[in-house]
Design a protein around this nucleic acid. Structure first.
Length: 570
RNA sequence: GCCCCUGUAGUUAAAUGGAUAUAACUGCGGACUUCUAAGCCGUUAUUGCAGGUUCGAUUCCUGCCGGGGGCACCA
């Protein structure tokens, strides 16, 4: 409909001998101002030195004179405010859009913007031997949603995770494990992983405060790299396995599946090789290290070390190895990395170095950054041990849900499933409801909500709709097939879904989906509140049921884009 | 010091250069007791400050102020 209106306006402008201009067509916030609105008259009036309202009149006359294709769905056109032209859609348009939603089903809202393209999205990036904290939860929720939005836009998506299984953090954890003892292997994977995280934190503190510990940790670090010590290898292999298994349990609850797991230990070799081959061309030697002088290419960039003076590759080199590996293995059209903003400046430098070596990759690397989760008391740091782990947060969230359903007549198994699905939704929504730029000051009470503007609100509303649909089979809709004259706000939001999806893709901002679904759910609840759908006297029952079904479908598709599941009951 | 992000009701957020800045939470009040009350209805703004561009600025530009991040061998 939007493109039809656009086409009509362009034709009208042509007939009036007005040059093509950049005008917009949007949905007015208030439905009183129509379903679509354009600023074309105001934009043109400037150049023509005429009154925008008079120009709008002329455009409308021209629009009405044009061949009708497109005008089928438009009931009336009006001029309002400073010169907006507002389009009001007809009852028929909304009725047929409901039908359209039901026909498209799970494909409703899809677009072809990335048709035939392959996209790799890297996200989550927790490190073995360190806790999975809420920052990882944030990266996971955002990365998962972005990959689903791209998939819904026609792309083949590949999910990748990158995990730091070597480096000083590993040595610190192993030092802690040696000093404070290993944990009981009869405990759950999650408990063992938590213990390893605690040892990391203690080891890290000792590294900063105790010279002897520092020396020992550096020795361990070297041994981890060259695998020269049998005892350390044993602890390393066990710790790596346990922490990775614990991550896997979390991914399962979160609903994420990765096709690729990249590890720093594997990327270091190739990265180092590439860097060394390009010394003198791209990289320079400086104080015994190999560096890249970013500022030579862009004043906003800076110098970073790629191979340190001990000859070991830094994270920067590993990132080069990783990126090249991704393109060698899958050759994606776009390679996206999702991380917190603290990596933004660093990534620009690395991507610049890569672009010089591979100019063709420059436009295919994309870094999406999000704000950081912070505690009211300051920055979280797993080194300091003041982290909130992913498990803890998930468990707290699920416990709240369990408490809410405890008196329901449901099996324990069902209650557990609901608490998982709803608990995760509450968390994910709290992350995905706002734009990616700003930080989230974490406060469980304030951050995780189960009422109004929340994940559970969206789920609850969807479940309500589903409940009507399943009860409807007992009703006969013969003689109840009239179409109501009035159009509800619900219908006025429903048909907009595909536009919201493509906008979310273009801006790479999942919160547009979240905001839209909340508006939609609210419109449904209003409708639900003042309409008794399953009532013998409801002569609109058939249409109302289609409307409920199309709402359910839209919510299901939209929540999928956020990585949120819809429970059967709640 | 330089660079990047950010600043909106008491709080947490939304707003593709547009119309009366939109919600939720909290507080107070209300309806139904019939399809799930995690619901519905009602009730609060100097968009950090000062300029500029524009018919029109929360949005774009400049400067200042506050918060966060980055700036050589951590990741």
């Amino acid at each position: 409909m939007k493109s039809q209106i656009e086409k009509l306006i362009k034709e009208a402008l042509k007939n009036l001998n007005i040059e093509d201009v950049n005008f917009s067509i949007e949905h007015p916030e208030d439905f009183k101002n129509g379903d679509y609105s354009t600023n074309v008259a105001m934009v043109c009036a400037k150049g023509l030195k005429t009154n925008p309202k008079e120009l709008a009149e002329k455009i409308i006359i021209e629009l009405k004179g044009l061949p009708k294709q497109g005008f089928g769905g438009i009931e009336k056109v009006e001029i309002a405010g400073p010169g907006f032209i507002n389009f009001y859609l007809s009852r028929d348009f909304f009725t047929s859009s409901v039908k359209d939603i039901l026909e498209k089903g799970d494909d409703w809202g899809r677009n072809e913007l990335l048709s035939g393209k392959k996209v790799m999205v890297e996200y989550t990036q927790p490190n073995p031997f360190k806790p999975f904290h809420i920052g990882h939860l944030m990266s996971n929720s955002i990365g998962e949603s972005i990959s689903r939005i791209m998939e819904f836009s026609g792309a083949k998506t590949i999910h990748a995770n990158y995990q730091g299984d070597v480096g000083p953090h590993v040595a610190k954890a192993i030092y802690g494990l040696i000093k404070f003892g290993l944990t009981d292997s009869s405990k759950s994977v999650a408990e063992q992983a938590q213990y390893i995280g605690e040892c990391y934190s203690k080891g890290s503190n000792l590294y900063d405060t105790d010279e002897n510990a520092k020396e020992e940790i550096e020795v361990i670090n070297k041994k981890v790299y060259d695998r020269s010590d049998v005892e350390i290898n044993k602890i390393y292999d066990w710790g790596r396995k346990v922490t990775l298994e614990a991550f896997e349990e979390i991914y399962k609850i979160l609903g994420t599946k990765f096709e690729y797991y990249f590890f720093e230990s594997e990327m270091a070799v190739m990265g180092e090789k590439i860097v060394r081959e390009n010394v003198g061309k791209v990289f320079d030697e400086s104080d015994g290290a190999i560096v890249f002088h970013g500022e030579k290419y862009d004043p906003r960039l800076h110098t970073r070390v790629f191979i340190n003076s001990k000859g070991l590759p830094t994270y920067e080199s590993k990132e080069i190895g990783l990126t090249i590996t991704k393109f060698e293995k899958e050759n994606p059209d776009v390679s996206i990395v999702t991380t917190a903003i603290e990596q933004a400046e660093y990534m620009k430098v690395v991507q610049k170095a890569l672009s010089i070596m591979h100019p063709d990759l420059e436009s295919r690397m994309q870094h999406i950054t999000h704000g950081m989760m912070r505690l009211a008391s300051g920055k979280m740091s797993s080194r300091k041990g003041n982290v909130i782990t992913g498990e803890l947060l998930l468990r707290d969230s699920m416990d709240i849900v369990l408490e809410k359903v405890k008196d329901r007549e449901l099996k324990d198994e069902e209650k557990k499933k609901i608490s998982e699905v709803v608990g995760v939704a509450a968390l994910k929504y709290s992350i995905l409801r706002s734009s990616l730029g700003s930080n989230i000051i974490y406060d469980f009470e304030k951050s995780i909500s189960f009422e109004g503007d929340s994940g559970p609100y969206l789920q609850y509303t969807t479940v309500r709709a589903n409940s009507i649909i399943s009860k409807a089979v007992k009703f006969n809709t013969d003689g109840k097939k009239e179409i109501p004259e009035n159009v509800t706000d619900l219908e006025k939001f429903l048909y907009q879904f595909p536009e919201v999806v493509s906008y979310a893709y273009e801006s790479l901002e999942p919160h547009h989906i979240a905001t839209y679904l909340t508006l939609l759910a609210s419109a449904f609840n209003t409708f639900y509140g003042n309409t008794q759908i399953l009532a013998e006297e409801n002569k609109y029952m058939a249409y109302h049921l289609d409307l409920v079904k199309s709402f359910y479908q839209t919510m299901k598709n939209g929540l999928w884009l956020l990585g949120i599941e819809v429970p059967e009951k709640m």
